[in-house]
């Protein structure tokens, strides 16, 4: 029979737990709230199909424009008797999916162009910088409005178009950081060891500049949500029967006098989501960005 000392393990767990609690306590309330809200939004985005009480096009014609707060329709219904809560959950999913997809496209394109500029310098660099200037001077909302109206709106086009938004910022940041990183010892060392440029940039430089890029993503993400909802509000973004947050506000506007809840629910979600991302993003920037310390 052997005696197993089990007393150490719970102690270690405790200390890990208390350390975790200490870390959590250091997070300001507003940031904690932002994280909780975003977690809830991500949960909704993944499980919208399972948690929504009705289909998004299911009409309850006897309960049209019913007030929020009744047991059958917690957030009320719209002019066709469709459940506002169910449509809201689906809208969160659609709007977040578009913003997420677009942010990823914009970050990948921008970072790649920035790295190319840093690697090749000369003409390539000038070309990237001129493109970035052009992108910054482009009235983006107006341009996308024209493109969507002329091509007809569809989900891939919308995501692709939003993905063009803000790439120039990643490109500028990635270029600047990569130039200064390649002057440092570690990058020169792996180059000396015979690593291919792809390996140097992906495995060594990218991880070192990632935190700044992630912070820029927290800046473009809410802007893309606002732009998508603006376009959908004007009727040029997400098309019915599919629904998004801006689309709901746009249609709810017609019933502003009789049923303001149709518009208030998605408007509230847009505000809270962009607010949460800004709060968390600001906090992350202070934590991650070494240049601000």
């Amino acid at each position: 029979m052997t005696i197993v000392d089990t007393s150490r393990q719970p102690a270690a767990e405790m200390s890990f737990f208390t350390r975790f609690i200490k870390q959590v306590r250091k997070v300001p309330f507003s940031v904690g709230f932002g994280i909780a809200w975003l977690a809830a939004m991500v949960f909704v985005a993944f499980f919208a199909d399972l948690i929504r009480p009705y289909g998004i096009t299911a009409m309850d014609l006897r309960a049209r424009l019913s007030l929020p707060g009744n047991p059958a329709h917690l957030l009320g219904t719209d002019e066709l008797g469709r459940d506002v809560l169910s449509r809201l959950l689906q809208s969160i999913r659609v709007s977040l999916a578009i913003a997420f997809g677009a942010t990823i496209i914009s970050a990948v394109v921008g970072t790649t162009l920035g790295f190319l500029a840093a690697k090749f310098r000369g003409a390539v660099e000038h070309f990237v910088l001129v493109l970035a200037d052009f992108q910054a001077a482009l009235p983006f909302l107006i341009m996308s409005l024209a493109v969507l109206a002329f091509f007809g709106s569809s989900m891939p086009l919308l995501i692709g178009l939003m993905g063009f938004y803000g790439w120039e910022r990643y490109a500028r940041i990635a270029r600047g950081l990569a130039i200064s990183a390649s002057a440092q010892g570690y990058a020169a060392a792996v180059v000396q060891l015979g690593a291919t440029p792809t390996r140097v940039y992906m495995k060594h430089i990218l991880p070192n500049v990632a935190s700044t890029l992630i912070v820029s993503m927290t800046l473009t993400f809410p802007e893309i949500i606002l732009m998508e909802s603006g376009l959908s509000f004007l009727g040029l973004g997400v098309q019915p029967p599919e629904t998004s947050l801006g689309n709901m506000v746009g249609f709810g506007r017609e019933y502003l006098t009789r049923a303001p809840w149709i518009m208030l629910a998605p408007a509230f979600v847009i505000m809270m989501t962009t607010l949460s991302i800004s709060l968390v993003g600001d906090w992350l920037r202070d934590k991650l960005d070494p240049t601000l310390r």
């Binding site: 809410p222 603006g230 506007r253 408007a267 847009i270 505000m271």
Partner: peptide, 18 residues
Amino acid sequence: AIFGFTIPSFVMGLLLVL
């Protein structure tokens, strides 16, 4: 400033109308 950043103009406009 935070509200200025986070409330889209169409929501602000409709809230003011309301």
